[in-house]
């Protein structure tokens, strides 16, 4: 068992739930959703723990419909050479909202966007929460949820129609393209699109 767990219990008490050692020897600790930011900041900043690297953020939905969706944070301390998996349970009856850790690890940006895109979990405080794998006008839902049909919700023809209606250039925001400074030199139509924040249009959708 990773010693950080005992230290967490001593500091946060009830906010720390079950802890167990996975088959590969890594420690998994479950924490309450409200304590997430505090716990994460503590894990990152406390000497002797210093989990300075967020390896991945992902989510799991179990076949058993009663079980909550689990968010999984893979942390690594380069200094301690230690790994820790932190889980947050999100019951399905409640809104799937959790605090964003982008403020702690900037690398969480795209990871959280992926979880949002695939599972529909909203990250409070995320600077740019948009779909990342599917295009932005994608309207069928969240593909990795268990209630999502394998072939999608719409007919193939409708899927093709919506896909062809997407604007291939609209996947980038101003910040991503770093063209904010070059804005004035862009062609008029592109400026107009960026100004309106256009993300593609589906013909005859209304």
């Amino acid at each position: 068992m990773n010693p950080s767990v005992d230290a967490l219990r001593a500091t946060f008490g009830n906010a720390i739930g079950r802890a167990l050692v996975a088959r590969d020897g890594e420690t998994i600790v479950t924490i309450g959703r409200d304590a997430l930011l505090d716990v994460m900041r503590w894990l990152r900043d406390t000497a002797g723990h210093s989990y300075d690297y967020l390896v991945d953020v992902t989510a799991v939905e179990y076949r058993d419909g009663e079980r909550p969706i689990e968010l999984v944070y893979f942390l690594r301390s380069l200094e301690q050479r230690a790994d820790l998996r932190v889980k947050v349970e999100l019951p399905k009856e409640q809104e799937l909202v959790v605090d964003s850790v982008v403020g702690l690890w900037a690398g969480a940006d795209w990871l959280e966007r992926e979880v949002y895109d695939m599972f529909g979990v909203t990250f409070r405080g995320h600077p740019d929460l948009r779909r990342i794998l599917m295009w932005e006008t994608y309207a069928e839902g969240y593909p990795l949820r268990k209630d999502f049909p394998l072939r999608g919700r719409f007919s193939r023809a409708e899927q093709v129609r919506q896909a062809l209606g997407a604007n291939p250039e609209a996947h980038y925001s101003m910040e991503e393209l770093s063209i904010a400074e070059a804005f004035e030199e862009l062609p008029e139509d592109m400026r107009e699109r960026l100004r309106r924040g256009e993300r593609g249009k589906i013909p005859f959708s209304e």
Binding site: P149, L150, R156, L164
Partner: peptide
């Protein structure tokens, strides 16, 4: 409509066939 083929035709050529007929998840 923003399509190359009539929708029925797209649905028809996109029908699952072979092994994927048995693939299902929901």
């Amino acid at each position: 409509r923003g399509l190359r083929l009539p929708p029925e035709q797209i649905d028809e050529i996109s029908e699952p066939f072979g092994n994927s007929v048995h693939q299902f998840r929901s």
